[in-house]
């Protein structure tokens, strides 16, 4: 069958909402688009362990420490589910990690912001995981089978993450005036970067066209961002915190909140490496990877020795 005919059949399958499986025909651009998006997603899960891992030793109680450990372990798991799913596209995990280390592959910019106080553990779970869930619920319907299945599994685990974060920030908002101030400060710092997690406006998102045509993405950046805002505002109000956006206003006609313009200069600057922690996050990942090299070597040698017996 000619390539053109195959592409027509492929698009017909997509239009009929069929899932594409690893051994099925797929256009090379579809494969490359998925490798880029899925590896970026996996890297985000893994790099995302750093701001929270930073607080494990300083968690305020044993209960909080156990929860945070479980959450960070989940994030590692999420990274691994998506790495495995990405490998079904014919790329190795080593290659994906090496692209991250060379700066050729990105991860979510939100993790380039520091986690300064314990209230940030609340804001991250509530807002960052909340934004990620909004995105991932939509991605459960993505056209690539292994990606879709990993999203289903991840979504089951994410609601624990968001609730534990909200519990932390709600507790602090109810605490002393100093604690409440910390909660408000965490919201102030994480609100706008959380909205940036959905990416540029649809009109400035060059790859959205193909991603929607191929049903890799099922809903646009702006639609998902609006959904996140609409469900989050009342959660802030309920615990007496104020969303740091003077333009935020309920729009009766649209049945949605209007909101202020995102600082896109900041967005692009962090994407391009200018955020407060870009260098730190990447260097830490490289160091952990290189420090673990002897473990991988030893395990390989041990397995080889036992195989030959």
């Amino acid at each position: 069958m000619g390539a053109e005919k195959l592409e027509v059949l492929f698009q017909e399958r997509i239009d009929a909402n069929e899932k594409i499986e690893p051994r099925d025909y797929m256009p090379e651009e579809y494969r490359q688009h998925l490798i880029r998006q899925m590896s970026q997603h996996a890297h985000s899960e893994v790099i995302g362990m750093q701001p929270e891992g930073n607080w494990i030793t300083r968690a305020p109680s044993l209960r909080a420490k156990k929860i945070l450990l479980a959450k960070v372990q989940d994030e590692a798991g999420h990274g691994l589910y998506i790495y495995s799913a990405t490998e079904t596209l014919g790329v190795t995990r080593d290659e994906l990690i090496s692209r991250l280390h060379q700066g050729k592959a990105k991860y979510a910019s939100i993790f380039n912001y520091p986690a300064l106080t314990w209230a940030d553990m609340g804001a991250i779970g509530w807002l960052v995981d909340g934004a990620a869930i909004t995105n991932q619920v939509s991605l459960q319907k993505t056209s690539y089978g292994p990606y879709s299945r990993s999203m289903v599994k991840i979504c089951k685990e994410e609601s624990f993450h968001q609730r534990q974060g909200y519990e932390i920030i709600a507790a602090m908002a109810k605490g002393t005036s100093e604690q409440k101030e910390m909660a408000q400060d965490a919201l102030n710092r994480f609100w706008w970067p959380s909205l940036m997690m959905f990416g540029p406006h649809d009109s400035d998102s060059p790859r959205t066209g193909n991603a929607m045509k191929w049903k890799i993405k099922r809903e646009s950046n702006d639609v998902l961002r609006q959904r996140f805002i609409d469900k989050t505002v009342s959660q802030a109000e309920l615990i007496g915190l104020t969303i740091p956006d003077p333009d935020l206003k309920w729009n009766e006609e649209r049945g949605s909140y209007d909101f202020g313009e995102i600082d896109w200069d900041e967005f692009w600057s962090v994407v391009k490496g200018g955020g407060p922690c870009n260098l730190k996050r990447l260097n830490h990942h490289k160091k952990a990877h290189n420090d673990g090299a002897w473990v991988r070597k030893a395990a390989a040698a041990y397995a080889k020795k036992h195989l030959n017996k």
């Binding site: 691994l80 589910y81 799913a85 299945r149 990993s150 599994k153 395990a299 390989a300 397995a303």
Partner: peptide, 24 residues
């Protein structure tokens, strides 16, 4: 089928699988 793991031998495969796919 739920997914896959990397491992050098059977024992590591089972341990990694447990940590990754049966946490709940």
């Amino acid at each position: 089928h739920v997914g896959s793991v990397h491992a050098f031998d059977k024992e590591m495969a089972v341990q990694n699988a447990r940590d990754l796919y049966t946490r709940r």
